[in-house]
Amino acid sequence: MSWSWPYFFDYMNNGLMLRGVWVTIWLSIISMTIGLGLGIFAALMKMYGNPAVRFISEFYIWLFRGTPILIQLVIIYTGLPQLGIRFNVIESCILGLALNEGAYLAEIIRSGIMSVDKGQEDASRAVGMNWRERMWLVILPQATRTIIPPLGNQFNGMLKTTSLCSVISMQELMRSAQMIAQIEFRVLEAYCIAALWYLLLVSIWGLIQTRIEAHYEKPFGSQEAVSNSEK
């Protein structure tokens, strides 16, 4: 059996494959969003919490960065039911991906917060902002500029990490390719199409990330560049 272009093109707009692409997209976005929330929370707990709170945050980060995401997914979906805790496939995937992502993002967000000039804390306190207001209005918006590049990198990784969810039978892109490959045993054609889709998704994200970075860089750009863009 040699390479077949007809199968290749047929798989390209195969309904099952396209459905997989769509699942990969929303699974990535939802998991990333929840993971970002968890990451901000964990970072703030670690930086500003009392020792007990800090311990919880550090334990969470240690645990989820220290074990493979594949084991985390399998434990959540197939292991926890043993204890009477049941999540369906979609819940398990989102939970596993978000918890894992949050642990990595916590450290990225922490370094972003630390990169903000100490004078900003003084200035925001001097105009009468309490801790919450300082964080949300002054510190985090400035940390975002430092956080966005590694955050984009993490989302790039997330798009591909979702493929691990195929192991617990989530019908995302990887699982779709598996299923298609089994129909006619056109394994190479099916997985090449899946690989191309991942490449396309990651490339589109790359373009979006560039625009987001430019947006947050705008206030910090060279004097000329900024004043030109305002005309």
Binding site: Q120, D122, S124, G128, Q142
Partner: peptide
């Protein structure tokens, strides 16, 4: 923070909010 609202402070390094 509420007390600080009634006092204005100006710093050596300005400390304007650079993102806005």
């Amino acid at each position: 923070a509420k007390q600080q609202r009634d006092i204005g402070m100006v710093f050596q390094n300005f400390n304007l909010f650079p993102h806005v």
